[in-house]
Computed example of a mutant assay.
Amino acid sequence: MSEWNHKVKRLLKSELVKRGLSTEDLTVLLNSNGCAETKSSVDSKISRGTFSASFFMQCLYVIGCTKIEIEQFNSSFIISQPSNLLVAEPKTDLKISRDEN
């Protein structure tokens, strides 16, 4: 399991524990908010730690979590040229000319 999957799984589980909720409680809350989940599907997703961001946000929403604290993460991934990873809108106005023929 990747480090990130393990971290997000622990984060969701810890939010459930803080509120005294089980995965069965989570399943009921999800279903009452329009999500079609079974207890086994929720258990499986959390166990794998490979659920989607939307599932994660739905879970946090239904349990009443409005803030999460993300722990410091040290990775072996080294960014050699950070400027290559940034994307920004140009600060100049673009002029579009149309040929009228």
Score class of each variant (00 low, 15 high):
22 S>N: 06
67 K>M: 12
81 Q>S: 13
46 I>T: 01
49 G>N: 04
16 L>E: 02
6 H>N: 12
33 N>Y: 05
5 N>Y: 11
44 S>V: 09
87 V>N: 10
5 N>T: 07
12 L>G: 03
45 K>S: 09
64 G>V: 09
44 S>N: 14
72 Q>D: 15
78 I>H: 13
90 P>C: 08
83 S>E: 15
33 N>V: 01
93 D>E: 15
65 C>S: 15
38 T>K: 11
49 G>E: 02
42 V>Y: 03
72 Q>W: 09
22 S>M: 02
2 S>D: 13
80 S>R: 13
41 S>E: 08
14 S>Q: 10
44 S>G: 10
55 F>K: 06
48 R>Q: 05
47 S>I: 00
71 E>W: 04
73 F>T: 14
97 S>L: 15
32 S>K: 13
33 N>E: 09
4 W>C: 04
28 V>C: 00
68 I>S: 09
67 K>E: 15
47 S>W: 01
95 K>G: 10
39 K>W: 01
29 L>F: 08
28 V>H: 02
61 Y>D: 14
3 E>T: 13
53 A>G: 07
22 S>H: 02
36 A>R: 11
4 W>V: 12
31 N>E: 04
2 S>N: 12
62 V>I: 08
83 S>G: 14
101 N>A: 15
24 E>W: 01
39 K>M: 04
56 F>Y: 09
93 D>L: 15
41 S>A: 12
53 A>N: 04
65 C>M: 03
82 P>L: 05
90 P>N: 11
90 P>D: 14
45 K>W: 03
25 D>H: 00
74 N>V: 13
11 L>G: 05
15 E>H: 11
31 N>K: 05
92 T>W: 09
39 K>N: 06
25 D>Q: 00
29 L>K: 09
54 S>H: 09
61 Y>V: 06
28 V>F: 04
42 V>C: 00
60 L>A: 06
3 E>R: 12
12 L>Y: 02
42 V>P: 02
13 K>I: 01
37 E>M: 08
93 D>W: 10
16 L>K: 00
48 R>G: 06
76 S>K: 14
39 K>Y: 07
1 M>Q: 13
50 T>W: 00
46 I>E: 00
93 D>I: 14
37 E>Y: 09
7 K>N: 10
53 A>T: 11
25 D>F: 00
16 L>T: 01
52 S>K: 10
46 I>Q: 00
27 T>M: 03
34 G>H: 01
21 L>D: 04
71 E>V: 12
96 I>K: 12
18 K>V: 07
100 E>V: 15
21 L>A: 02
98 R>V: 15
95 K>Y: 13
16 L>A: 03
98 R>Q: 14
33 N>M: 03
6 H>I: 15
22 S>F: 01
79 I>H: 07
72 Q>N: 13
74 N>I: 14
19 R>H: 05
33 N>C: 08
81 Q>C: 13
38 T>H: 05
76 S>P: 10
37 E>N: 07
13 K>M: 04
18 K>W: 04
21 L>E: 03
33 N>R: 08
64 G>Y: 07
65 C>T: 15
67 K>C: 14
80 S>K: 15
89 E>R: 08
99 D>L: 15
57 M>V: 12
20 G>H: 02
67 K>Y: 14
59 C>K: 00
19 R>Y: 02
6 H>S: 13
10 R>V: 05
82 P>E: 09
